[in-house]
Nucleic acid binder design. Sequence first.
DNA 1: TATAAATTTGACAAATTATGTCAAAATACA
DNA 2: TGTATTTTGACATAATTTGTCAAATTTATA
Lengths: 101, 101
Amino acid sequence: MDSLGDTIRKLREDKELPLRTVAAFLDIDQAILSKIERGQRKPTREQVVKLAEYFKVKENDLLVAWLSDKLVYEVEDEDMALKALQLAEEKVKYMAKNKGK
Amino acid sequence: MDSLGDTIRKLREDKELPLRTVAAFLDIDQAILSKIERGQRKPTREQVVKLAEYFKVKENDLLVAWLSDKLVYEVEDEDMALKALQLAEEKVKYMAKNKGK
DNA sequence: TATAAATTTGACAAATTATGTCAAAATACA
DNA sequence: TGTATTTTGACATAATTTGTCAAATTTATA
């Protein structure tokens, strides 16, 4: 089960690119990209979009991984994590069904 | 499908208490409690715990509602909301299974 | 080994978001 | 009406996020 950071690192290493290069494209210091890849920092939505473009992967796949990482971060060290996620799921489904109302 | 705000408002109105009173117990301005009840502000974890104590309801029930509200807030206006929630769920389950490793 | 490239670390700064106060406006109702 | 309650919005403060920078560490290779 890869985190988004793992995925990004693999994409970068497959192309044998240094942090410096990809970080320059994202317009951030390489230190941040290093931390992102190792899960010490969360990328912004914009950075994820840019990464998808850069590595030519589906934007949505990366965004789903990014969002789910944020959710996990939000519930971690809460023992009711699962219940909260499931309830949130119900709420989202409910809202989708009654969208706009 | 009640939000946490709805629940709190009902609890307060059942006891016919003004915002002022409950807000004083929480040690915040009544304006904030008003916004919390109507979903314009998110309460802090500590406030939720205090509310559970104040209204004599299960702390965990309120916390699950609070956490799930935060999750919904996090994914709202993302069309991959459901997918992200489901993936997050898998990750949490995976982490629980391999906890500590 | 040595030295150059790449990565990681941690202290700090800047920007953003969260949380709160306050007073005035709006609403409910005796 | 007048009084209590609630809501609104401008603003201040606190906390968190996002970033830079330089030094330390690790990795690769001449």
